[in-house]
Design a protein around this nucleic acid. Sequence first.
DNA 1: TTCTCTACTGTGAACGCTCACAGAAGCATG
DNA 2: CATGCTTCTGTGAGCGTTCACAGTAGAGAA
Lengths: 343, 343
Amino acid sequence: MTMSNTGGRRRPPTIHDVAREAGVSRGTVSRVLNGGHYVSPAAQEAVNAAIRKTGYVVNRHARSLITGRSDSVGFLLTEPQERFFEDPNFNVLLRGCTQALAAHDIPLLLMLAGTRDERRRITRYITAGHVDGVLLVSSHSGDPVAEELRAAGVPLVACGKPIGLGSKVSYVAADDRDGARDMVRHLLSLGRRRVGVVTGPLDTPGGVERLAGYREVLDEAGVGFDERLVVSGDYSRASGEAGAERLLTQAPDVDAVFVASDLMAQGVLAALQRAGRRVPEDVAVGGFDDSPAAVAASPELTTIRQPWDRISAEMVRVLLAQIGGEDPAAVILPTELVRRKST
Amino acid sequence: MTMSNTGGRRRPPTIHDVAREAGVSRGTVSRVLNGGHYVSPAAQEAVNAAIRKTGYVVNRHARSLITGRSDSVGFLLTEPQERFFEDPNFNVLLRGCTQALAAHDIPLLLMLAGTRDERRRITRYITAGHVDGVLLVSSHSGDPVAEELRAAGVPLVACGKPIGLGSKVSYVAADDRDGARDMVRHLLSLGRRRVGVVTGPLDTPGGVERLAGYREVLDEAGVGFDERLVVSGDYSRASGEAGAERLLTQAPDVDAVFVASDLMAQGVLAALQRAGRRVPEDVAVGGFDDSPAAVAASPELTTIRQPWDRISAEMVRVLLAQIGGEDPAAVILPTELVRRKST
DNA sequence: TTCTCTACTGTGAACGCTCACAGAAGCATG
DNA sequence: CATGCTTCTGTGAGCGTTCACAGTAGAGAA
């Protein structure tokens, strides 16, 4: 029983305790802690032994106070909160970022900027230097928080190409256009010629790019573009359902649909089913994301995989580089067609 | 242009700057910052004006260094990570906790303890005092991290009744048994008599309680208990699908199913559909959670709402109370039957 | 007047760490 | 022998707060 456990916590050992235990000075312990340059092997060893023995863990507040760094980063969501809950992609991204940061021993602070007040509070918190950088999820345009952070010089990496922030903001994104091309080519290769599309929100680069890829392939295949085959959605399940209904009205002969998100594709499947169309026999359906929703759908969705694990890893890499003084960077990652039952 | 914006960030104002600006001492500013007791109205006013003028934000690291508090809490997930992504409840809980904490200006640190290494690192981080308390999501038994934290005297609030941690750990949970009772009563009230159940994992209190509620109502209604009507799952969609298949084999005359989670209920619906049973005409299906999955299902699920917003709010309240020195507490919250299309 | 009490204010010390600097020791070079 | 260089080590200062304490001013009571 080394620990009296009556509610209060014992005062943890300090760098001083370690120094005394190892028979060296605070400075030497600090040097060992920070890379071990200019430390003799003997001292190195003694300090490490003392750290193990005392169970020392550095006090990050004391360190931050003098270094000016916080050694933590924020994960900021300025989207309308609903999307967060409905879209499984956020989970995957959040998890990936948390783990990638954990590998660097950097905690992730979750920040949800929903209301005006929350936005103000969070902006203050960040610009006050309480985090070293921010991972940003905000695909819609005109985001005042992001703009303010950028102006304040806070290292920032967005997920997906941000709008209206100039070229000074780093971002990591999947190759939306190329992914869309792959999917539409796949649908054409099945012999379908009346290929519809349910787009994402067209005020986001992702939405625009996926639509552009669709058009490109139709052009290159010599299949005419028919605007009755195009309806727009907002990535939500409900908008997919509504979109499919509109599509069936405008172009009843549709024999394939490229849907710009898996969640919308779920809605499309439901609407088609209700209309008595069989998938994939009557209408082939292709999604986008390869989110958990793709496997949960029935039939399971053929979709375009966004490499979320790589996206999150790259976001963290770019952010840390930027915190380290490097210039902003843009990273585009390749997508992959995943064939399942819906095509 | 008050801010030179060439990459570096300007040194933020300190309490000293505010004191000089307001013509008072650091101590007075500090008192205003911490509640304003024993401060004259005039000084109060002057300090607030100076804070607004300078844009001062307290340096939390300096504060933490001396107070010993970190004014932050961890949100710790020790579940197998997959559940996190599949189960929409986690999102709602995470969001609720983040927002409830934000109201107290307390940041939430997301901690995912998947691997052994991660567990060790996180345990060290927490016991070193880098967070004041922990919100714990870990319904399965034998969680070494939780036990270690409890032993170290870290304020801890679990979501759902934890197993094997003695009574010293606070928790907040929905009234699982009562919810199950409501649902089964509802199914009986529809005239169904062959009511099956797909349970949750039976090494968790939630799973056990929901099954107990089911049995209680059958007993009280004089409907005999038939073990062929009972299959067990693990809250995952896939296990619901498998469970329903087993149920149809063991008891083909089943006319209602109480499923212990919405996600499993999705799987049950899929399996029933495949087997040619109509819902709700042939088989009524009741879920549990009222997660987004309930509305996404087709037909939309009748389910038992867990009051996630209240659960998260209570978790935060209890945790902060405990950090403030109060004793651990258990909170049980009522559930609510939500009728939709599946019954 | 003198004392006590309350309301308020300022000051130095401390929290635990890193950083800059000074210096010691060892070795090669002039 | 002095000089310089490299490698290593210890020391004092200071990061921006809070806290304990000392002190002041004014009001009321003796």
